[in-house]
């Protein structure tokens, strides 16, 4: 079952073809990794899915609906949530408030709710409960009252993931979730990502540089290079594809890569 279909999606910035005719179908309930060297167009592809940019050509279909030209907040409310490569938590807000924002689009409270005490209490309460549940999943509930940006890097990443999960999306896009984490944190993150798939039954698309993480979690890997898709398939097959190795390391790096593997 394909939940997201990327159909010849292209994005050009002036003369630069950041994403060039990429076609890929994302399977429901699986973890798909997108890898590729810096500047390969991975984050641009995320930005296209979440509505930051309009497509230059092609289309992206989510449950038979084209996401092209949709506003990011509409796409979010359809059920696609994301995290960011460079963490973008709301700096003046507490951890809890940050996550509560993520649930806003599900509840859609109106002005009226402000002035009817019962409804107001119900809205705030359910936002808080949902946020706390999400924080609990990521083991950072004790940090709920702290300023989000005062947390160590690894915990900030987890807050971002909680903020993405709180709205109960169908697809979660994680942009380099393990960046800046130490080995221990990275490991528990990997386990958590598989839990998102196995226990919450969500589709995960992840951009990741750490090959160990990629190999361990992925059901499928898509490789981008200079905006093109150069490989797509199951991990073992893709990671041994000579074209992928070359894109990553250049020809001279072949031996090094072989040693790592």
């Amino acid at each position: 079952m394909f939940i997201l279909k990327i159909e010849a999606a292209s994005k050009y910035f002036g003369g630069v073809r950041a994403v060039d005719a990429v076609t890929a179908d994302i399977e429901e309930g699986k973890i798909t990794s997108i890898i590729g060297p810096n500047g390969a167009g991975k984050t641009t592809l995320f930005n296209l899915i979440t509505g930051t940019y309009e497509l230059t050509s092609g289309d992206i279909i989510f449950h038979d609906r084209s996401l092209n030209r949709m506003h990011p907040h509409v796409i979010h409310s359809l059920g696609i949530a994301r995290t960011f490569q460079n963490i973008r938590l709301f700096p003046t807000m507490s951890v809890l408030e940050n996550v509560m924002i993520g649930f806003h689009s599900k509840l859609k409270p109106g002005i009226v709710d402000l002035f009817i005490p019962n409804r107001y209490r119900r809205v705030e309460q359910s936002m808080k409960e949902r946020a706390e549940a999400a924080l609990n999943l990521l083991d950072i509930l004790p940090r709920a009252g702290l300023k989000a940006v005062s947390l160590p890097y690894g915990e900030q990443r987890r807050v971002e993931i909680a903020r993405a999960l709180v709205s109960d999306p169908e697809i979660v896009l994680l942009d380099e979730p393990s960046a800046g984490m130490n080995v221990g944190e990275g490991k528990s993150l990997m386990q958590f990502i598989t839990r998102i798939r196995d226990e919450m039954h969500k589709t995960v698309i992840v951009i990741e540089h750490n090959m160990r993480v990629v190999r361990w979690i992925s059901d499928r890997i898509i490789v981008l290079d200079h905006g093109h898709k150069i490989a797509d398939g199951d991990p073992e097959q893709v990671l041994h594809d000579p074209r992928v190795i070359e894109a990553y390391l250049g020809k001279s790096g072949l031996t090094n890569y072989a040693q790592v593997n």
Partner: peptide, 10 residues
């Protein structure tokens, strides 16, 4: 705080 991030959060 961050209007782009807010938009992505719905």
């Amino acid at each position: 705080d961050d209007e782009d991030a807010a938009e992505f959060m719905g």
